[in-house]
Every structure is written in structure tokens, then in C-alpha cells.
Design a protein around this nucleic acid. Sequence first.
DNA 1: ATCGATCATGCATCTATTTTGCATGGTTAT
DNA 2: ATAACCATGCAAAATAGATGCATGATCGAT
Lengths: 310, 310
Amino acid sequence: MIDARLITLRVFAQCGTIGATAELTGYSPSAVSAQLRELQRVLGMQLLTKDGRGVRLTATGRFLVAGSDPLIAQWESLRAAAMEAGDQVQPRFGLGGFSTAAAQLLAPLAAALRSTRPELEVQVLEADPARCFELLVAERIDLAVIVAMQSETYGEDDPRFEQTVLLDDPLDVIIPANHPLASRETVTLEELSSEPWITEAAGSTYHSLFTAAFTAVGATPRIAHEAVEWETQIAFVGAGLGVGLLPRLAPLRGAENVVRLRITGKAKPARRIVAAVRRGSIASPLIQESLGILQANANRILTARLEEDL
Amino acid sequence: MIDARLITLRVFAQCGTIGATAELTGYSPSAVSAQLRELQRVLGMQLLTKDGRGVRLTATGRFLVAGSDPLIAQWESLRAAAMEAGDQVQPRFGLGGFSTAAAQLLAPLAAALRSTRPELEVQVLEADPARCFELLVAERIDLAVIVAMQSETYGEDDPRFEQTVLLDDPLDVIIPANHPLASRETVTLEELSSEPWITEAAGSTYHSLFTAAFTAVGATPRIAHEAVEWETQIAFVGAGLGVGLLPRLAPLRGAENVVRLRITGKAKPARRIVAAVRRGSIASPLIQESLGILQANANRILTARLEEDL
DNA sequence: ATCGATCATGCATCTATTTTGCATGGTTAT
DNA sequence: ATAACCATGCAAAATAGATGCATGATCGAT
């Protein structure tokens, strides 16, 4: 049981402003400000300094936050062990995930948990990966299903989290049905490098996947349009505005005038879907069960794909 | 920063009843009861069970308390390191100690701290060793000067505490001035084994020292009277009611008709005075400074004794 | 330079949690 | 059987904490 004010400090350390901390933790900005001041008072430490129009951590503050990583992990570990040893039931369980991951993996998980543990209050939050990690730190959620990103702020070895690979989800190409290549079974990215591309807004989770895929083949595609939702992107392609990348897990549904093609060649772009939990909590029975369900679902998807590919 | 409710649980684990926990932590019994119930709710664990007219920890509860020992230690360690790294000042400092220890060591320490750190709010609590440990667990005090006891509930290796030997304080014999042996410089316990003895109440801290001293020489002295305060015991001896043991640190002042003699022989009973802190907190600058002052004072006492013995 | 936007903080108000004190019920010892 | 002890429930009170708005300070853009 770690004091709530230390958790708040950790959230602040991550997002840098009082306002964002408030939004993430569910408090008001004044409450966060008061909490952090109180924390400094009881600890007798100066943790924050004014910095421009905001505040930032002092060296002591950074030291304390960094040093509290193993403390949190140890507490999580202890709680998990006590749960395990005492055969106790957790009252609340927060899940976080992003779009298709949430739809394809989190929803079945939540449904499965509702049947195996009717008492458990399961809450699912849809949030992008970065926010999922923040929500984990803020203890708003206990498990996140996210898209792993290379060269991101949250490395595999972050002392605050433990991550488990669930699934590698390949990216397909979607092109207009009247496109010359539409009758093909597979294409290479090189063949499409001169096409007008439809992608997500720069800075978004999938945009980095997009650029990574093309830097791998040494091409710099022209980005014709930007969309936010898969649905929009698919509609753009259907209207003949260009071509796009779509994760295998994202359903095409009965979209008109759109064809989905597998990518072959040396660059087979894929997004890696991982489950992340707070470090130490992985031994918890509930987390274990959840990871098992997620893994089973991932395997089911992979198996279905193999059969489909035959 | 460990949640206050977990601290309360730890205190309960030590003293066993809600009432004692309340007395030790400063809450009311109902408050403790409510806190522990709340703790069970948020953790989703059953920690307590009814047991007769009281309650006791469940297996899960014991597991959690035992497992929280290193958690507390790690927090204390982190706090100490942050204090050290950030050159911060602690606002409050609680000291605990017992009778002569408090008078001879704690009082000078408190005085020294008041001069070197005027900002620091120092609070001294006089309490017997067992209670000092409880007060450490309850975080009411941060440092205790106590008499180490052999075969006690608090071993040197208790995961909750770290102990430092300050001083071995030998026990002297006090006898009436008109006693045949009163003119001697030194005596052995064997010579006095048939005397009527004046000691402290059975179960008290010093009673166990008394019995240990005599079991060491294989004698079973007759206990004629029991006293609580040194003053009373000295007065009894002065009245010729018997003889007694008195720690060297306890002053005889100008007591009438009482002579103090050194003990020689194979059994040289002594009480060991140690400083105890919560494990992990020993690196704190304040603790370090305090231990230094205590040690210096102890050395001063030892040196003075050596000169006196010449 | 000025205006507007962004951020943190202080303050008064209110809310919610926590604590208290007493009464109750169950349990052990005399 | 009576008395003492212990935990708990409940209503009332106290305290701590959160909110919302206003303020001041800073930064970016026009």
C-alpha cells in the first residue's frame, strides 16, 4: 500500500504538468497542487520548483521518483503474492487498450472475466499506448494491451512495467478495387512506393509504423491524405484517393471498392501487440488468468490465420 | 511513503489487540477498527478473523505483514537517501528511551540536536524497551535508546530494526553502609548470594538482568523486596533491608547509608545499551548525526570511567 | 508590444472521509 | 452468575480534502 500522494508525484513526474496529472488521476488541479505541497511538508523535502509558467521536479524529486520504482514493484509483488497465498479476490480490475486491440482482445477478455469472476468489477478504458502507460502509473488500470513501438519513451526494460508479447499483427495493403494490382494475391511495398498514400496523422501511433515500414525498404512514399479512424482511411481508399496500410486485425467489413492484399518481400511490416502491467503485479492470479486468456485468444487468431493462408 | 493503514496493520500485528493498537498509534479503537476494515476492502483481502473476544490476523494477514517488512525498510532507505542527496531537513524527530538511558544519553542528544538543528522539532518519549520497539513500528519515534535483552522478542536480526551497540553498562552492587562488606572495594556475586535482595518487579526489564546475572554464577538469591524506581530501591538499601544491583549509569546521588561496590569474579553482569532504528533509516543524515552524538557521549562516559578506575 | 493562451496557486466553500464517544453483544475469567 | 474485557456498530462531530473561481506569472503569436 503506497501512499496516494507518492503515486500522484509519480504521475506528475511522467506528464510534467499539474493539469495533466489532475486529468490523469481524476483530481482537480488544485487538489494535485495541494497534495504535492502536503507531500513535501510531511517528507520535509523540496520536490518541486517553479519553472516558467509550470513547475518541475527538483533533483531530490527526481531521485525520489526514480527510487520509488522498485518500491512500487515490490508492493505489487507483495500484493500479488498475498492474493495468491490467501486465495483472495480482487474487487476492481482496470483494463486499457487501443482501438482494434481493445476490440479484438480486450473485449473478449472482459467478457471471459465477467463469466469466470462475476464478482469482479471490470472497467475497460480505451486509450492510446502512451496514455495506457500513464494510466498504469496512475493506478487507474492494471493491465494494458498496446501496440509496441520501437524507439519509444517506454522501453522493454522500463523498471515500472513488465511486458508480454501477445501477437505480431502483420500490416496489409488496401487498394482500390479498380487498381491494376487489385487482382494480385500479394504485393511488395516497393511496387507501391510511388502510389499516393493514405496514413494517419503524423505523431500518431501508426504513423511511426508506416514510416518504419518504408525506411526498411529505402523508399519515401508520398503521403496524400491523413485519416484518424480506420473507417475513414478505408473509405478514402474506396474512393480511389490512394492506398493504405491496414493491420490484419482491423476488419475491412463489407467495404465497397476496396481490396486487401498481403505484403511480401524483404520488408514485412507488422505491429507487435503486447500486454503491459505494473512491474511486480504479474504474479497476481488475476493478471495471470488475464494473460492466459489474452494469449489463448492471440493463438486462436494466429491459428485461424494459418488455416486461412492455406 | 507507506499508506497509514498498512502501518496500523503492522502495529496490530505486533500488539494483537485493537485497543492496544489504538493506544499506540494515538487513534481511538473504533478508528483502528474502521481503518483495518477499509484496508481489507481496498485490498480485497480478508486480513482479520474473530478470535474469542478479540481478533487475530488471518494467514493472509500474517503473510502481508511479514512481507511488508522489506517494503518498509526500502522506503526508509529511499527516504534517507533522498534526504542525503537533496540536503533536506527533516521537520520532526521522535526519540524514545528508558529511564537512565533517557536521562544520560537521550537528554544530551536532544540538547545537541536543538543547538545544531534549531528548526527540528525533537520529541522525546520515555518508554520501556518493548514499547520503544512498538513505537518505532508505529512511526511515533524514529530512534530508540534501549537496554538490549537476551532471549527477548526482538532479536538483533529482526527485519524491522537495525541496532547499534552504544555502551556496556556494568551493574554495581549497592549495600548498606554498615554492612560488613561495605569497606571493600569490590565483591563477587557469590559473596552476596545469601543476602536479602531488592530487585524490580518480575517481568520488568531489569529483573531479567538480575536473574541472568545469578544464573551465570549458579546461585538463586532470595528476593526480599521489589521496587519500581531506582530511588526506591536505593532507599530500601539505605534502610538496611537488603542489597541490590544498580547500573553504573544510574546515579547514587548523595544517598545516605548506601555504598556502591564494583563486582568482580567470573560473572560481571552488565546491561548492553543499544540504539535502534527502523531498518533502512540508518543512512539518514539525521540518524547518522544522532548516532554519532550518542556514540561520542558513550565514549565520553567510558573514558571517564577508565580514569576513575585508575 | 499587446493580446491571448497556458499553468500553477491561493482562498472560500463545500463535501466527504475519518474520528470520536457511547452503547451493544459476545467471550473469558473470577 | 457476575464482572471485566474486547471489538464493533451507530450517530454526531471534527477534520481533512476537493472543488471552482480568481489571481498572477509566463510564453507564444500577432
